[in-house]
Amino acid sequence: MYSNQTKLKLIQATIDLIMEHGLEKLTINKVIEKAESSKGSFYYYFSNIDNLMKETFFYSLNHNLFEFSYCKERSFKENINLFGRYLIKTSKKKSPEHAIMFLWISKCFQDENYKKQFQEMRKQIIEENTISRDLKEIFQVDIEWLYMFDIIIIGFLVHCILHEDEDVLLSIWEQIVNVMISNKI
């Protein structure tokens, strides 16, 4: 049977191809060739190219968050401040995973199919990523707070990409955290 490694190779091939050629030129055959896989492997894991794109988006999202975890011994505010530092650090890496997420979002402005898919994925994106699961479990934040946090993170990441001064970004994040903390409870 197929291994999970095969699925990851297909997803990584998708990321590589998107970074090289954009979303529009992505095909199942190109992904299979890049991953050195087969159509059988592809269809074992993905029903179609849209399903592959969704899985690639979720992989990219969670891969970006993978290195960060909340610490139960720290206060909620300390954890959120550390997360802001993490966002700044990861945005400076200019990772393909960040690019995939923003390409997908920007594609929603141009293509109703992407917009519809993104809307269908919204709940899963916001409520089921690794960071959200930790926030719900450790700090008992509610769903409304997670949606607000998601909106803030997206905007903050854009500013992290555009702004070079990390001290200014940290100051902005701390101001944001103070507002978020007052709305947590």
Rank of each mutant, 00 (worst) to 15 (best):
L65F: 15
L162D: 13
E166D: 11
Y59S: 03
D50V: 00
I181W: 02
A13F: 11
L17D: 03
K136N: 02
K115E: 09
Y45S: 04
C108N: 14
K89V: 08
K92H: 06
L8A: 00
T14E: 01
I126W: 03
T130W: 03
H63M: 06
I88P: 07
M148F: 09
E112N: 02
F46I: 06
M1P: 03
E33F: 11
Q119S: 11
I28C: 04
Q119M: 12
V141F: 10
I161L: 14
F58H: 13
K72S: 13
E67I: 01
K115D: 06
K115L: 14
T130Y: 02
I143K: 15
Y70P: 01
Y59D: 05
K136G: 00
D50N: 09
V168T: 09
T56F: 01
I100R: 00
S75D: 05
L103P: 08
D142P: 06
I80G: 06
L26G: 13
E55W: 03
E144T: 11
Q5I: 14
S75V: 07
Y44T: 08
M53A: 09
E97A: 10
F58V: 06
W173M: 15
L65R: 12
P96E: 10
Y114W: 03
Y86I: 09
K9Q: 10
I88R: 03
K34F: 11
M53F: 07
S60N: 01
I80L: 15
L169H: 14
N48E: 01
I161C: 05
M53T: 04
S69H: 12
S47M: 03
Q175S: 11
F46N: 02
F46Q: 01
K92A: 07
E67Y: 08
F42H: 02
A35I: 10
F42N: 08
M148G: 05
S95R: 13
I18G: 13
F76N: 03
F57Y: 15
G155R: 12
L162A: 15
F46W: 09
L52K: 02
V158T: 09
S60A: 15
K107W: 01
N62Q: 05
